[in-house]
Design a protein around this nucleic acid. Structure first.
Lengths: 198, 198
DNA sequence: CGTAACTAACTGACTGGTCAGTCAAGTATG
DNA sequence: CATACTTGACTGACCAGTCAGTTAGTTACG
């Protein structure tokens, strides 16, 4: 039983094929070419292209969770900035293309309920992580006591989403957003009493 | 020579076809069906589908400029909120689908330099409009004197882009973003002295 | 041990359908 | 009649999905 290996192989191949061809131009043959399987083998393991891509989104979600859970940092302020950075940063392989493919998939969500469901999970997970950090900070006095953790977390996710969309659409670097967001956190979320040197 | 009428007819048909089918599934036949022309007639007027879509983006840009230029409002603060609203609101025909199609086109920008160029114009135009309002407000004391008009304008555009992306991806309403952005403007941009009742 | 039966995994060749773009022939109009 | 415009029919490329058949491994059994 090497189901695990085979599935991983196909998922990895799908990732590479997506980066190379983009979502719109992605064919089953492209994925097969990136793996050591044939196109028919893909159809043996997944009933349809759609099924394969749904599985791929699930695989991505797992990787996303691994990547952003338990952000480093002593204080809630540090953990918040670490989390923001790890979302803004490109994946390890530095692939700009992957962000493009994800945006293509996002844009298809209205036509594919399965996609929308997965993507909503991504966003909700990120909101939850942010919320926990914000609440920790409210409790220990780092952040203003009157801020609404959920609304604030949603807002930060919106900003991060906007930055990712702009990077793909216009090629605009995310650095400016990173800076503005750090400033927003400092002047808007941080409780006035605290002095920060981060 | 009824170029004007014909071109408008085709652009309108493209708009409707885009809303109905989305960008990914959009065929020349779909556009022809929405117009009173044949598919071959489209190819008579535009060398390729790509050309037609580039022209369509230009047509959209003109409409976009018309829609957001000279926002209503006595004060810079009011004008800023009006502008934000007119970007967040759906087009007049209330079509959710159009936002989807635009996001699909955004996601294709990396593969189509012509698209990227147009889309960058959209963003830059919006940034300029915001910048003018912000500078007006800095001059007349509405907004804090030490804020960087361009960076702030870019940040607002990022937020607006994020809201549009989320609406398409997860179906999340933009109201929360509208509220958070209004609050951001009040507590972050508005000069402390002024009292506001808007 | 050897061989027969069975099976999961896989393959290359094929099919049916779709679509951008072409073309020869037509119509309308100034 | 010439120019602008339009059409239906067609072509060639492409692609998801199918299918008959192969291979490698595993169990069943005399």
């Amino acid at each position: 039983m090497n189901d695990g290996d085979t599935a991983d192989d196909i998922m990895d191949a799908t990732y590479r094929a997506l980066c190379t061809h983009g979502y719109a131009d992605l064919t089953m043959q492209d994925i097969a070419d990136e793996s050591d399987k044939s196109k028919a083998a893909l159809h043996y393991h997944y009933d349809s292209k759609h099924d394969l891509l749904c599985a791929f989104l699930e695989y991505l979600y797992d990787g996303f969770v691994d990547r952003i859970e338990d952000p480093d940092g002593e204080t809630p302020h540090e953990r918040l900035l670490t989390l923001i950075d790890s979302v803004l940063d490109k994946p390890d392989d530095g692939s700009e293309e992957f962000g493009t493919a994800i945006l293509e998939i996002r844009a298809h969500a209205p036509y594919e309920p399965g996609f929308r469901e997965r993507l909503t999970e991504f966003d909700d997970y990120l909101v939850d992580e942010l919320e926990v950090i914000l609440e920790d900070g409210i409790t220990d006095g780092t952040f203003k006591s009157d801020l609404d953790a959920e609304e604030t977390a949603r807002f930060i996710v919106t900003v991060l989403t906007g930055a990712a969309t702009e990077r793909v659409t216009t090629g605009r670097p995310v650095e400016c957003t990173r800076r503005m967001l750090a400033e927003y956190v400092e002047t808007h979320l941080l409780d006035g009493q605290q002095e920060v040197t981060a």
